[in-house]
Design a protein around this nucleic acid. Structure first.
Length: 203
DNA sequence: ATCAAGATTACCT
DNA sequence: GGTAATCTTGATA
């Protein structure tokens, strides 16, 4: 087994949310379905949310039924429903009760393209534009990977959904910007993405 | 019991 | 660039 492709363990996730956010770039997100169907892709864009200081974080005002997974120990998946239409997926970070998580905003697909295409567009033959459009946004990822209520709270150190290690992306190839779609704490530059990657949700 | 807002997307002009 | 879609949650009464 290649050491570069080892599954990330608990200690990766239980660190500071900004550190984990930047290091998540380039890692491979994997979902196993029915024990064999594999969906995977490189994480290319993320945003950090820090419960204790960040007014835009769902966890800012404390634990509720909706956001309780954010207060779990790092290494869990927080999936929430929004706008009456969409799901978004986050990687919880830090110690238990920290309330920190990283929103996965864009993925470059690697395996399971046909299944993703079927779920996104109801067909498997895609043109170039549709191919880029498969997973270049937080809710698109959830549709392509079929992440919903069932996956909320999933332990990423288990066998169904997990991340594979890859070399760190060099700091100079990481672009740092304001987060998208929020109205509070807009001054924080906590969105990170890989420079020159085609699957970024928004330039 | 009621209500406003929401970590978005697709489709329109 | 503008906005409808669509529903759950959390706050307030």
């Amino acid at each position: 087994m290649k050491t570069q492709q080892k599954k990330l363990t608990r200690s990766f996730y239980t660190r500071n949310v900004l550190t984990v956010a930047k290091e998540l770039l380039g890692k491979i997100f994997v979902k196993v379905e029915n024990g064999n169907k594999i969906l995977s892709g490189y994480i290319v864009e993320v945003e950090a949310y820090k419960g204790k200081v960040d007014q835009a974080a769902h966890s800012y005002k404390g634990k509720t039924k909706r956001n309780e997974v954010m207060f779990e120990e790092g290494g869990h998946l927080y999936v929430y429903f929004t706008y009456g239409v969409h799901f978004c997926a986050n990687v919880v970070t830090g110690k238990k009760n920290e309330g920190d998580a990283v929103l996965i905003r864009a993925i470059e697909p690697v395996e399971g393209l046909n299944l993703m295409a079927e779920r996104r567009f109801g067909k498997t033959e895609l043109n170039e534009k549709e191919k880029i459009n498969l997973t270049n946004g937080p809710a698109k990822i959830c549709q392509a990977f079929n992440l919903g209520r069932k996956e909320n709270g999933e332990d990423l150190t288990g066998g169904k959904i997990y991340l594979l290690d890859r070399p760190k992306i060099p700091t100079k190839e990481i672009i740092k910007t304001k987060r998208i779609g929020i109205k509070k704490s807009t001054g924080l530059l906590w969105r990170f993405y890989i420079k020159n990657n085609s699957y970024i949700s928004k330039r």
